[in-house]
Each structure stands twice: as structure tokens, then as C-alpha cells.
Amino acid sequence: SDPSEDRAPESARVGNIPSSTSALKVPQLKVAESAQGPAAAHTTDTAGYNAMEESVSREKPELTASTERVNKRMSMVVSGLTPEEFMLVYKFARKHHITLTNLITEETTHVVMKTDAEFVCERTLKYFLGIAGGKWVVSYFWVTQSIKERKMLNEHDFEVRGDVVNGRNHQGPKRARESQDRKIFRGLEICCYGPFTNMPTDQLEWMVQLCGASVVKELSSFTLGTGVHPIVVVQPDAWTEDNGFHAIGQMCEAPVVTREWVLDSVALYQCQELDTYLIPQIPHSHY
């Protein structure tokens, strides 16, 4: 159930021909089969995070001529859309010479989310990475209204306002976009420790780096000194050995919190207090 199309920051360009055919990675995205229709094609874990990302398996898109002007500035990904909605975005992107990729990268400028009429969405990996990267996180209605009015409308009017977990109007995407000089995790050293489900560890690490944190791979690698705040992030329900995560405190002095601390902080683009996310640790033995 991992969102495989989000696994690594590679891009698939639509609308320009790469210098070599080997560089072309066409979105071959799968549809989750469901008797209840597209709305039930998501699996949500206890964290309220949509693990099964969206989309559609299609034939290789038709490439435009390399001489045609390509908008190098805009690059989009989509999240939560049905196959039909994805194809509408594809046509919109081609019309406006926008790069459409299946994986979010540093070059991505827009994340197009499936939302309700009030621009509230589910939480997906692309949603988190879009906010963390200060990108435009907009409703699919931006595409449909632009098509209806036959011009590209202003993104401000379609920015995602909230999500089904953290609140319907928290304005996290807007706050992140306007606060890239004040990253929420700066001054923190974060170790993403142990197993994680539904989200590859490297993507979680990239997320906290985008928010200004330094990533530490091992508990023994924390910088011990003033001005640096170490934090260990774990996902308790992913551990097979009972309560192993309670013993992390015996290996390092850092506070240990659940992954929800990261996800909530990123969604709201406000660093949350650790208290409600802390995992009790077995104290050091004193002999």
C-alpha cells in the first residue's frame, strides 16, 4: 500500500522531449479497484494519511515538438484524482505547456489535490511534501474552472485551506508558501528511527529536511552541544517487537515522539509542542 509513485524524486515530463529516451519516465500509475468507486480507492491508516495514492495507467502520452515553447517555470503533480480527472489535468497541462510529473521533486511548483467545495482535502504524501516545500497546493477546481473560463486563473483563489485531520481552515499551505525564510524545523536534528508504514523513510526524512531540520541516520550520531535540539521520530504501530520503542531512551537523551508530530506540524506549518506526542521511555539503569 506504499505510494510507489511518490517513492523517489524522479520526474516524468509531459510536453517536451528529453535529450535521451532513457530520461523519459512516463507516468504509469495504477488505479485502486473498488466496488464503491474512486472515493473508496484510498486506504487510510490510523494517522489519517492516505497511503494508496491515486492515478491511472495510460499509454505513453503524445509528445509535443521539441521546437514548441515549453513553460520551464511550472511543474505539476496530482493527488487523489480519478483517472478521468487526471486526464483533464493532463490536457490542461499540455495546453498551457506545463510539465506534469508523477513524482514530486524540487522543481515541482504545483500540487493539485482532490478537494471538496471548500478546498479541504485528504492528507497524502504529496500534500505533506508540497507544503514542506512551500509549493502551491491547490484544489482540482483550479484546473476545472480555468478550463471553463478558457484562461489560467489565479492560484490564490484555489489554494487548499485545510484537511480532514488537522482542520478545515488552518491555511497550512499558504503559511508554508509565505514562510520559506522561517522554516519550522530549523535548529532541530531529527532521527527517523525504526520501521514506518505507508510512507518510505527517505520521503519522511526529505520532508523534515525541507522544513529546515538536519537528518541524523543513527541514534549515536546526534550532535551533543548547545543550540541543537535532537528529536527521535517513530511509528509505534509499525513495530513488531512489543514496546521496543520504549527503550530508545536508553540509547540517547533525545525526546522520542510519534510520526504524528511531524505530520501535524507540516500540515499546519507550525512546529507543534512535543508534549502530546511524547512516547514514555524506560529510564537509564543506574548501577
Results as ranks from 00 to 15, higher is better:
38 P>S: 06
1 S>T: 04
183 K>Y: 12
284 H>L: 06
184 I>P: 12
66 S>Q: 14
283 P>S: 12
199 M>T: 06
89 V>P: 05
24 L>R: 10
181 D>Y: 08
200 P>H: 11
170 H>D: 02
199 M>V: 03
188 L>H: 03
225 G>S: 13
254 A>G: 12
257 V>D: 01
68 E>A: 14
224 L>K: 03
277 Y>P: 03
16 N>I: 15
149 E>V: 03
193 Y>Q: 12
3 P>A: 08
140 Y>C: 10
7 R>A: 15
192 C>L: 03
89 V>F: 06
81 L>E: 01
279 I>V: 12
158 F>T: 01
244 G>V: 06
244 G>L: 15
48 G>Y: 03
286 H>A: 14
181 D>E: 06
246 H>V: 08
31 V>K: 12
81 L>A: 00
132 A>P: 00
64 T>G: 03
30 K>A: 09
207 M>E: 02
50 N>R: 09
239 W>S: 14
106 E>A: 06
55 S>P: 07
218 E>A: 01
73 R>D: 13
45 D>C: 13
180 Q>L: 13
122 E>Q: 06
190 I>P: 00
135 K>V: 08
52 M>A: 04
182 R>F: 07
262 V>D: 01
259 R>M: 02
13 R>V: 12
33 E>F: 15
183 K>V: 14
176 A>P: 00
56 V>C: 14
91 K>C: 06
86 F>E: 04
119 F>K: 04
139 S>K: 00
33 E>Y: 10
196 F>H: 11
128 F>Y: 01
221 S>K: 12
15 G>R: 08
90 Y>P: 06
48 G>D: 04
29 L>S: 15
98 I>V: 08
222 F>P: 15
145 Q>N: 02
1 S>N: 05
155 E>R: 02
219 L>A: 15
128 F>T: 01
53 E>S: 11
283 P>T: 09
77 V>A: 15
179 S>N: 00
192 C>S: 05
278 L>T: 11
115 T>H: 00
32 A>R: 06
180 Q>T: 04
62 E>P: 08
45 D>G: 10
4 S>D: 10
279 I>M: 08
189 E>L: 08
113 M>S: 01
115 T>L: 00
119 F>L: 14
110 H>L: 02
238 A>W: 03
18 P>L: 04
102 N>P: 12
163 D>S: 01
246 H>M: 13
102 N>R: 07
186 R>S: 14
16 N>Y: 10
14 V>I: 06
18 P>C: 13
139 S>L: 01
247 A>Q: 15
114 K>M: 06
38 P>N: 07
281 Q>S: 12
280 P>A: 13
178 E>L: 13
277 Y>L: 01
28 Q>A: 02
98 I>Y: 07
102 N>L: 03
131 I>T: 03
98 I>T: 05
285 S>Y: 02
212 G>K: 05
27 P>R: 05
56 V>P: 01
241 E>I: 15
245 F>W: 13
245 F>A: 12
45 D>S: 03
155 E>P: 10
169 N>G: 08
76 M>P: 01
230 P>T: 15
123 R>L: 01
113 M>N: 00
182 R>S: 09
180 Q>D: 15
107 E>N: 01
230 P>S: 15
117 A>L: 08
117 A>M: 15
8 A>G: 13
193 Y>L: 14
117 A>D: 09
155 E>Y: 12
20 S>P: 05
169 N>A: 01
57 S>V: 10
31 V>P: 10
42 H>F: 06
200 P>C: 15
12 A>D: 03
59 E>R: 09
178 E>A: 14
21 T>M: 01
69 R>V: 15
250 Q>T: 13
198 N>V: 10
80 G>Y: 14
137 V>L: 11
286 H>T: 11
58 R>G: 04
260 E>Y: 13
226 T>M: 13
166 N>A: 03
147 I>N: 12
145 Q>K: 13
99 T>S: 08
243 N>F: 15
86 F>V: 10
243 N>P: 03
182 R>Q: 04
158 F>Q: 00
143 V>A: 07
188 L>A: 08
40 A>G: 14
138 V>Q: 00
24 L>I: 13
193 Y>T: 05
230 P>R: 15
195 P>F: 15
161 R>V: 15
131 I>R: 01
184 I>V: 11
272 Q>R: 13
152 M>P: 06
170 H>P: 01
168 R>C: 09
191 C>Y: 11
252 C>F: 15
93 A>R: 04
172 G>C: 01
3 P>G: 15
17 I>L: 07
265 S>C: 11
159 E>A: 04
165 V>L: 02
248 I>W: 13
105 T>L: 07
273 E>R: 11
11 S>V: 12
77 V>H: 02
107 E>I: 10
253 E>K: 05
128 F>L: 01
171 Q>C: 06
49 Y>Q: 11
48 G>V: 04
15 G>N: 10
122 E>T: 13
133 G>T: 03
276 T>Q: 14
28 Q>N: 05
246 H>L: 12
79 S>G: 03
105 T>K: 05
255 P>E: 11
272 Q>L: 09
170 H>E: 01
158 F>S: 00
111 V>T: 02
208 V>A: 13
253 E>G: 13
188 L>S: 05
4 S>P: 02
165 V>F: 03
241 E>D: 15
190 I>L: 12
280 P>F: 13
165 V>S: 04
35 A>Q: 06
134 G>K: 13
41 A>S: 11
98 I>C: 07
258 T>F: 09
93 A>G: 04
